[in-house]
Amino acid sequence: MREFLVRHRPAIVAFLGLTLPLFLLYVHGRENRKTTIIEKALTQVTAPVQGAASRLLSGLSDLWNGYIALTDVADENEKLKSQVDKLSEQATRSALLEDENKRLRALLDFKRARRELVTVGAHVIGKNVSPYARVVRISIDLDGKSGIAEGMPVIDEYGLVGRIAAVSGGYAEVLLAVDPRSTVNVKVLGKGVTGTLTGTTSQSNYVSRFTYLHRAEPLAEGDLLVTSGHDKVFPPGLPVGTIRSLDERQRDVEYELQVTPTVNFSDLDLVMVVTAVVDEAAEPPPIETPQGPSAPAPQHGASPTNAPPSGPPTRPQPSHPGGNP
């Protein structure tokens, strides 16, 4: 036996080396499974390092933008060097603070408008490096004591971001709403049209596909799509996207339209995980005109959990709808 093992050692090693990954692939490729211990362990090892690398590079980038890039100017004019450095640093810092302030204010407004949503804040620390998946890794602020679980919706001030796909300690992976594996039940705000929103695998931009059976009312470009809540996964009334064009495609009895997400996925930084929906009377959201001249007015008189959404706050539009992946 021992002689056999010694003689065929390379073949046995090759066999084990090729079958072990296949076994892991089989286990992790199944649908509707829980996060395995291997995934948790890997996340525990890689996420802190990735987070540290991200912070380090961000710091170096800030240093470069705020100081080193200005040294050439300083060389040309030694006398003004210190002034230029100080002013530039202050300007950069104040611009960053202003930007952060705007985002936090928008998040606060969103939280005030949707008081029934119990949320936990999180920072995005890693984005997918695969062209096939639309997944981001987030660091949860409460360090593992937040009650975050798989399937929980993730939002930002502009609307639905996605859902938690895997959790480990203070880290989680979010399957974005534009991932082809994601399906969300949605309705067209103010019109009697419901359907499902599925991600697409478009590489050039983040686009989703709205599939529906029939239209009660004519749709228009820019019509706002919000979560319907029928799937019992996402709370109703979260802005998801706007109808991009009315070029309809028919598949059997279903129709399809392209949708531009309200969230800028290429600029995700702060997000909120919805951990629970409480039955509390929500403060009526400010009535805003949703995007586009033809967008419908929000409905009134709905119950708290069916509270009408305000249109997503306006954000600087990326060069491509939904941002570049």
């Binding site: 990954p21 076994f23 995934e39």
Partner: peptide
Amino acid sequence: ALALGLLHDGFASGATIGMHME
């Protein structure tokens, strides 16, 4: 190679564990 593949699976968000190992 197995260890490096596993590491790659860990760093690639959304990757199925075992894919890069194989």
